[in-house]
Amino acid sequence: MSRVHDMGGQLPAGRIVMDADEQPFHAEWEARMWGLNEAMWGPDSWTLDWWRYVRELIDPGDYLNRPYFDQWMQTFAAMMVDSGIATVAEIASGKSDGSRPLEASQMHAADVAKAARTTRDFRRPAATAPTFKPGDKVRTRFLSEGFHTRLPAYAMGKVGTIHAYRGNHLFPDAGAKGQEVAQHLYTVSFAAADLWPEGLGRKDNIFADLWESYLERA
């Protein structure tokens, strides 16, 4: 396991507990944190994948034991300090020291819902033809530890089948480094038995959207 966030499908952590009421928030502060999330995408360097990578760096003890939206707060706090937007002391006190002017344009509460409905298109024109087509057998690569990737550890080095081609999309591993690079994206089907020994004899399949550089011919 490369980092604690990549524990899915690897550790015997038991069943996933699902909320019966399926409510998105269970406390007022969680809804407020979600609203802050919608309002805080300012610096060009703050890509979605940079945000994900910073969250992946949270201390394992915090990652496993602190609430989900609390992790969001930690992530944005770290990004603000890293970008020079705020200091640790300012975040701890909740007050600006006045040394940096605030941006003139600020989001108000009424604008949060509108921002949440705004979508981004991560597709990009393709300069090359896709290497694989539906039905091709592929093997996922083993990627080195230490940075962001959307290839889960439990699927590394496994054989699957191209289920569908999804077009040319921004590559998250590069996006976490502030680079805009696009690659062909595929949905890959894996037999559960090829991923976990507990799946032996079952007909379940796992589908994962994976970029071309994650794959090689099996």
Score class of each variant (00 low, 15 high):
S83D: 15
G84E: 00
I85V: 11
I85R: 00
I85N: 07
A86T: 03
A86W: 02
T87F: 10
V88I: 06
V88Q: 14
V88Y: 03
E90G: 02
A92T: 08
S93Q: 14
S93F: 01
K95S: 03
K95V: 11
D97A: 04
G98N: 02
G98A: 03
G98F: 00
S99R: 12
S99I: 04
R100I: 03
R100K: 15
R100A: 02
P101R: 01
P101Y: 06
E103W: 10
E103V: 09
A104E: 05
A104L: 14
S105Y: 06
Q106Y: 01
M107K: 09
H108I: 10
A109S: 14
A109N: 08
A110V: 11
A110Q: 14
D111R: 10
D111E: 15
D111N: 07
V112H: 12
V112D: 13
V112A: 10
A113N: 09
A113Q: 09
A113D: 13
K114D: 15
K114C: 09
A115Y: 08
A115S: 12
A115T: 05
A116E: 13
R117P: 00
T118D: 12
T118W: 01
T119V: 13
T119F: 14
R120K: 11
R120I: 13
D121I: 12
F122E: 15
R123I: 00
R124D: 11
R124M: 15
P125E: 04
P125F: 07
A127P: 05
A127F: 07
A127R: 14
A127E: 15
T128A: 14
T128H: 09
A129F: 03
T131K: 15
T131A: 14
T131F: 12
F132N: 04
K133V: 15
P134H: 08
K137H: 10
V138Q: 03
R139D: 04
R141L: 12
R141C: 05
R141W: 07
F142A: 10
L143R: 06
S144K: 13
E145K: 10
E145Q: 06
G146Q: 05
G146R: 08
F147T: 08
H148M: 05
H148T: 03
T149C: 06
R150K: 10
L151N: 08
L151W: 13
L151T: 05
P152H: 00
P152W: 00
A153W: 06
Y154H: 05
Y154G: 01
A155Q: 02
A155V: 01
A155C: 06
M156R: 12
M156G: 02
G157E: 05
G157N: 07
K158D: 00
K158R: 14
K158G: 05
V159G: 03
